Simulated scan of single mutants.
Amino acid sequence: MLQGIIGAFGVRVPVSYFMSLRPNPSLFEIGLATPMSSIVQLILYLGFMAILKRREKQ
């Protein structure tokens, strides 16, 4: 659940806001915030799983 909040409010909202501030923003550029958020959420998930596996081995 925390990864979803980080992805939405930590990545998607700021990236879409900053993309809209650029001169002549297009909907495509603003929409790139969604895949960027998904990539960050995937990295967080994989990192968490790696930490859990490392703890499990100890």
Rank of each mutant, 00 (worst) to 15 (best):
I39A: 11
I6D: 10
G47C: 09
R54I: 13
E56G: 01
F9A: 06
I43M: 10
V11K: 06
K57Q: 03
V15D: 02
V13S: 02
R12K: 09
G7T: 04
F48L: 11
E56Y: 05
R55C: 04
A8Q: 07
P25S: 00
V15T: 12
G47R: 03
Q58Y: 12
V40S: 00
T34Q: 07
E29L: 10
K57Y: 03
F28H: 05
R12T: 04
G47S: 09
R22I: 12
V11E: 10
M49L: 15
L27Q: 08
S20P: 00
G10V: 12
I39G: 01
R22G: 05
F18W: 13
V13Q: 04
M49K: 13
Y45W: 12
Q58P: 08
K57R: 10
G31T: 00
V15P: 00
L27F: 09
K53G: 01
S20G: 08
M49V: 13
M36P: 04
Q41M: 14
P25K: 05
M19S: 08
K53L: 08
V15K: 00
V11I: 13
L21H: 06
V15L: 13
I6G: 12
I39E: 10
M36R: 07
L32W: 09
M19I: 01
F18H: 01
P25L: 03
R55G: 08
Q3N: 12
T34C: 06
G31R: 00
R54A: 13
Q58A: 08
A33R: 01
L44H: 01
A8F: 11
I5A: 14
G7W: 05
R54W: 14
P25E: 09
I39N: 08
K53V: 12
A8T: 15
I30G: 01
P35A: 01
E56L: 06
Q58S: 09
S38D: 15
P35M: 02
V40T: 14
L44Q: 03
F28I: 15
G47F: 07
I5Q: 07
I51T: 09
S20Q: 15
Q58M: 12
L27V: 12
F28S: 07
G7Y: 03
L27E: 13
V13W: 11
P35K: 06
M19Y: 02
Q58G: 09
S37I: 04
R55V: 12
G31A: 15
Y45Q: 12
V15G: 00
F48Q: 12
S16T: 06
S20N: 15
